[in-house]
Design a binder for these strands. Structure first.
Lengths: 144, 144
DNA sequence: CTCAATGCAAACTATTTGCATTCGA
DNA sequence: TCGAATGCAAATAGTTTGCATTGAG
């Protein structure tokens, strides 16, 4: 579903309000590349809309996560990052520890194995995170 | 290898010093159950050794991670957690989002698939993290 | 002796909250 | 109009650091 429509529905269902700032943040959020932190989005927004406060960006991103159009990520650098969620698809990440490059991938077989692991422990999976840390091709080559 | 021996070797190789506090922290660390935060270990230590400071616990855990006898974990609750590393074995985690229960598991097939994913992206994996979040059997039952 | 480690307090970073004001429904 | 949202500043939580003192090698 269209994220903007999804957001509008969530907002009206919850009796919240759809402000100018929220629309600006949503557009910038969708147009940005994934995996940015609150701060990065805030700085980017500030270039064009210097009146938008950090707290608003933060609260709005939380709201996006709440209504399912954003996912929170944490790659261990102490910053929470966000990325747009598109439908039901799920992907995981390769993270280059040298240059910070992030590559997304999907591997249905891994997901299946996860289900079987969960089953043997009588666990009901709600979600998961899988990150592979290492060197991308370029950094591995430069490392020689 | 014995973690204590491993630590002693690392310390002398690096020209560091092996203090009383470090031994106390190491013993408590090894005796504790896994997945505690710096704060939890600090509070536990303080019961018996009230003179040990938080900063010392923190720096010592970092040191353990550095010399390979501890692994840092982050389950998204904003606290860094540590667990003892035993040899080469690797395990991942099932995390109950309701009661906080953490179950460890190993699944070599998943590791293999990770390698193949990495290979298709010319990635060299150094390490990875896989966490499955959901409900444990007890919480799923209580949820009915 | 020398230099690393300690313990305390203070600094820092990321995140969250209180509150007076603004603004959407 | 009424309550949610905003923007600012201040509070909080977790982590890290500066520095005078202590202690291991």
């Amino acid at each position: 579903m269209d994220p903007i429509k999804q957001f509008n529905e969530y907002v009206s269902r919850k009796g919240l309000k759809n402000t100018n700032q929220r629309m600006i943040i949503l557009e910038t959020f969708l147009a940005s590349e994934s995996h940015f932190s609150t701060e990065e989005l805030y700085l980017k927004l500030r270039e064009e809309y210097p009146k938008i406060g950090y707290a608003t960006v933060h609260r709005t991103l939380k709201l996006f996560a709440e209504c399912g159009i954003a996912a929170e990520r944490n790659f261990g650098d102490g910053q929470t990052r966000f990325e747009p969620v598109h439908g039901e698809e799920h992907h995981d990440h390769l993270v280059c520890t040298s240059c910070g490059l992030i590559i997304e991938f999907e591997e249905p077989q891994i997901e299946k194995l996860q289900e079987s692991v969960a089953a043997t422990h009588q666990f009901t999976i709600e979600n998961h995170r899988l990150e592979l840390y290492g060197l991308c091709a370029a950094c591995a080559a430069a490392d020689q």
